[in-house]
Design a protein around this nucleic acid. Sequence first.
RNA 1: GCGCCCGUAGCUCAGUGGAUAGAGCAACGGACUUCUAAUCCGUAGGCCGAAGGUUCGAAUCCUUCCGGGCGUGCCA
Length: 570
Amino acid sequence: MIPLLEFKAQICSILSQLTSLPGDEVETLLEIPPEAELGEYAFPCFVLARQMKKAPPEIARELASRITPTALLEKAHPVGPYLNFHIRRSGLIRGLLPAILEGRGTERAAQEGRGKTVVIDFSAPNIAKPFGVGHLRSTVIGHALYRIYQELGYQAVGINHLGDWGTQFGKLIVAFRRWGENERLQEDPVQYLYHLYVRFHQEAAGDEALEEEARQWFLSLEKDHPEALALWERFRQLSLQEFKRIYAYLGIEFDQYQGESFYNTMLEQTLQLAREKGLAKESQGALVADLEPHGLPPCLLQKKDGATLYITRDLAAAIYRQQQYRFDKLLYVVGAEQTLHFRQLFKMLELMDFAWAKNCVHVPFGLIHFKDGRMSTRQGKVIFLEDVIQRAVELAQRIIEEKNPGLQEKEKAARMVGLGAVIFGDLVNDRVKDIEFDWDKVLDFSGETAPYIQYSHARICSILRKVSRGAAPEQAAELGLLTAPEEEQLVLTLARFEEQIMRAAADYRPSYLAHYLVNLARDFNRFYHSCPVLTAEENIMEARLVLIDAVRVTLAHGLELLGIEAPEKM
RNA sequence: GCGCCCGUAGCUCAGUGGAUAGAGCAACGGACUUCUAAUCCGUAGGCCGAAGGUUCGAAUCCUUCCGGGCGUGCCA
């Protein structure tokens, strides 16, 4: 265990004994002081005031007097109503830096999910529709959670629940049969299908019969009509190829590409189960589950024309996934506009007597919209992810050309930086909030951005390259020389890495980790400007090399968890 | 109408019921013969949407209101 967590555990144990509060309650009460001079952890004594019938500052003083220093605990110091705990810096540094360099920096976190499985449903683009920036959110948040949970020791299963079934295929079939041209489909499948989709909605505005025709075709598709099936299969294959190309570029892989259509054969069984449990009943010709007693609107399981609905497929999918993976957690990284859907879904699973229903979690996120309104696939108001990535990579290329023209493998570095900027720009936002799409912001590589973090990483690599032997913790016996304020701050921030990973996982918020990395990079840049490494006196240089190497490892590791690469030169 | 989510610096956003509410961008002023200036330092900028309540303590929890977004039986 890294020293900081050991330190925290010691504090909990000591305080628990002195106050007779349970250890885990002490742990939740412990907080991180606003400034480093106030120690690493603080215990607010207000809670004890009533039972001890004393003023908090007095309690703090009293507790402090009964705590003796240990190898890790330098002092417990009362400041007003707070009891502040200071870690012994030399112990922290000597324990932490080698642990990071030996890959033991997140040992404790890795225990958490041992032997457990988490299934993550993310990305799930709609077949035959272009991959817009809107889809980026689910994709990058889901992917980051996938890696973060792996880091916690979970067996992670990433599922791409493709939108490859539903009424929209009726629309596409109608559109293609009326206006479709094979050559154009072959040339640029997704763009062309998208074009047909938009045209369908334009024409349908003045011709109501089209919508009805589309519903009929979808019904035919569900009944295995050969022509419908052949068109669907073709649209699906062509789209999937495109998506896989984009995922490859993003460096994302899925364990399963089981889209909605995969569950078609299980639907009858699912409906049957709902009937057996007394949940499904006829209403206005459709099959409906009444969730009124649970404070939810009714849940429509089957349309009056017999066609299925997505909640039925989601029910089947959840049941199938439990059978297949025996998951301990099932995460749905899906937009906040579907919150009601998931509340209904989870309630249905519960009412079907699946005890694991409580392990299903909707991880919602806000919409990406324009300044003047929301994006709409139907109206053709979208920004394509590929355009965004392309412009970001081009910008990275231009900057490299300007600042580092001699760099080898410029394209590779530009790709990492441009892509990183796009991914990070999404992840850094709290996922529940809506995002306004702004080209200026996407194409700004300064400040709290991936390039800033990557640049810090590249700077460290550059220093390390200039020392032939590299950093050698075993030779640097003098890690205790790292006493400059910038050095101490950097060490403390390094020590927080593991906590932040656990917090990001617990709240399903990769943004915590993103912000952490910005802080770490900032602490490094401050250090860089005030503490020379290569020109420092021998012992200090050795110690600083170890320090920056640990920063390098942590930055790269953190970025990796977010699905972002860290170039060694840029 | 009802339900859910969001209102923090000019803009974009951090902020674990706790100590003096913090960053980035933009603005202004500084720092490159020195490990990559995609950087760093400084200045300025706030009734934390409003009002009540709970609490020793509220940006954070509760209630109401205002503003915005999303959803609300045959789309996903």
